[in-house]
């Protein structure tokens, strides 16, 4: 059974790594936000896997993942709003063109 936990954690690690790669390399800000959502999903998978296969299995992991989902929804809404405001100001949605702070 513990091998099941290891395989779930490995899947979560793969998804987290792919999301991290997307955040680091993609140009479109929408895709960067989506990659962040993918990373949050990997974390959720970890929480739920530990809520079943952890040392003390209980529903608390699922409750925590519900909280994470709600916070991620708020984050996505604010992120898209910031993206649209930035797009109106700058006329582009590419993250590598937002470089005001670069001297």
């Amino acid at each position: 059974m513990s091998s099941m936990l290891a395989s779930f954690l490995t899947l979560a690690a793969i998804l987290f790594t792919i999301g991290c790669y997307g955040v680091l390399t993609k140009r479109s800000a929408v895709i960067v936000l989506l990659s962040i959502e993918l990373m949050l999903n990997a974390v959720n998978l970890n929480l739920i896997a530990f809520s079943k296969y952890g040392i003390i299995p209980s529903l608390k992991g699922q409750v925590f993942s519900l909280f994470t989902i709600a916070v991620a929804a708020a984050e996505a809404a604010v992120g898209v709003a910031i993206l649209i405001a930035l797009y109106r100001k700058r006329g582009t949605a590419n993250v590598d063109e937002y470089h005001e702070l670069q001297s």
Partner: peptide, 24 residues
């Protein structure tokens, strides 16, 4: 970025493989 993410995954994978999970 590819190398960094690969290294991150390698660390995570080795940590997962190296842990003895207790059967609940």
């Amino acid at each position: 970025a590819l190398i960094g993410c690969g290294a991150l995954f390698a660390v995570l994978f080795l940590a997962i493989r190296g842990t003895a999970f207790i059967d609940p």
